[in-house]
Design a protein around this nucleic acid. Structure first.
Lengths: 119, 119
DNA sequence: CTGAATCCTACACGATACTG
DNA sequence: CAGTATCGTGTAGGATTCAG
């Protein structure tokens, strides 16, 4: 789903043109991001557990394919939602954590998680 | 993504087994649902506009393929998030609206939408 | 341990055409 | 108006292998 295009919800003049409805276009970007596999759990885990290592994420999330986690982490980083810190140790250690944007997202996601848990 | 399977996040005993973390499995179902194209906008529009006809949804959402909207509506109905009411008129009229579950979802989605709008 | 590269498969989506 | 049926395509995801 490309994000730059006109979405029809803000350009539509046919339906209730005088009521100012919200435009849902910006949401699609976020949804696109967090709807990818493991993305939401990553954000949630980092939010509740703090900085977490690659390997820990693999286990906690039950990641099947390692490459998928790698891809997802890179995507979330370029979205500016998480950040990566690597330590010069042997064996190597890398920790991922939420950026302030990521935290903001995690907070606004929480009502959803709680509701999903009940239901 | 199937929903019944063990997800690794609740069965994992390797990582911090004594801290009671939230299980994110239930969320995947919701996310799966609303991440499909037009699903979130449908819920939002029905939430803010009330009962809406098929044709209106097509226009407001800028639906390209009619069959896609049809599919999505059916999915949301079997999820119990929206409901369909058809009127015996000529021409035929059908209105979709949120169920109480759908309204609950829409409310918990709102913080996300607002944040997405700002960013 | 922390990844990246490759290949393959399944499925969501788009386009088109057709029906009550 | 309110859909369904069918088919082609792009891409996310899974499995596997290899590397710093």
């Amino acid at each position: 789903m490309s994000e730059g295009e006109s979405c029809g919800c803000c350009s539509s003049s046919t339906i209730t043109p005088d009521t100012d409805r919200t435009c849902y276009c910006p949401v699609n970007g976020i949804i696109d991001t967090i709807s990818k596999k493991h993305a939401l759990p990553i954000v949630s885990v980092l939010g509740s557990n703090g900085p977490t290592r690659y390997n820990e994420l693999e286990e906690v999330l039950g990641v099947t394919s390692s490459s998928l986690l790698s891809t997802r982490l890179n995507e979330l980083m370029s979205e500016g939602l998480i950040e990566r810190q690597s330590f010069d140790e042997i064996p190597p250690r890398v920790e991922y954590s939420l950026t302030s944007d990521g935290k903001e997202l995690e907070e606004r996601l929480r009502p959803l998680l709680e509701w999903a848990d009940e239901a």
